Amino acid sequence: MIELIRQYWPNYLYTDGFNYNGLVITLWLLVVSVGLGFALAVPLAIARASRNRYLSGPVWLYTYVFRGTPLYVQLLLFYTGLYSLHFIHEHEMLNSFFRNAMYCTLLAFTLNECAYATEIFAGAIKETSHGEIEAALAYGMSKYKLYTRIILPSALRRSLPSYSNEVILMLHATTLAFTATVPDILKVARDVNSATYATFQAYGIAAILYAAIVFSLIWGFRKMEIRLLAYLKPQGH
């Protein structure tokens, strides 16, 4: 394995000499999909938690579809399915977008991540203490201030443990990117295995890299939970 690492470690970590590869691509997929998914999920979660069916209904349908179908199927639909439609070819921008494997992969990952995050945040919003809401209304807060100062900060803090698990699951899901020829860690491991026939070593290195990322995420989220959820711990007398 040491000789394999010495020969192929640039491919696993960042580049094959021409394009970015491996760890860099995996982290890029994770950061972009989680970042965009979070940005979209917050307003959608507010709509999902609304009592107005015209707001919550479409969001429920979106999350139902994307949580109810496999991510792999969604990726194939975006990468090969949509490109087979005639109107995609007729529109220059759409044609260029759906011909790019990275764009299609990021789109599928982002929409899938957003669907799960939306339900997590919406559940936390619905579980906000009525006492906090009544106190804010009694103080004279507008609905906008009520959400930005009370409901959202509290909900996002309380949803942190569930959301951290979702981010880790999203990291695991990035392994599907190799099916769209995106050169992530798993794609590099498969190429190394094809070149060397050292199957255990090739995929063993990939497993170590994924485990290192997961442990880093767990450590980071644990630190955030200790800091942001300290007020929920029982206070000593």
Rank of each mutant, 00 (worst) to 15 (best):
E132Q: 15
L75T: 05
L152S: 03
R67I: 00
N165V: 14
H91K: 04
Y163A: 08
L107Y: 04
Y163N: 05
E119K: 09
T63M: 08
F98P: 05
A101Q: 06
N112F: 02
G131L: 12
L106M: 04
L160A: 15
A122R: 13
I88D: 02
R157C: 09
L77C: 05
G131I: 03
R53E: 06
A138S: 14
L146V: 11
Y64P: 01
G57R: 11
Y79D: 14
L152C: 05
F66A: 06
S129W: 01
I150G: 09
Y83W: 11
A117Q: 10
L152G: 00
E90M: 05
A155H: 01
S159W: 13
Y62S: 00
A138L: 10
H91F: 13
F66K: 12
N165I: 07
A155Q: 08
K143A: 04
E90F: 02
C114Q: 10
A108C: 03
W60R: 11
F109C: 09
R67C: 05
L82Q: 06
H91M: 14
L61T: 07
I88A: 04
T118C: 12
S154Q: 08
N95C: 05
T110S: 14
A117Y: 08
K126T: 14
I120Y: 07
R53S: 14
P161D: 11
G140F: 13
G57I: 04
E113N: 03
E127V: 01
H91E: 10
H130W: 10
I120N: 11
Y54V: 12
E166M: 12
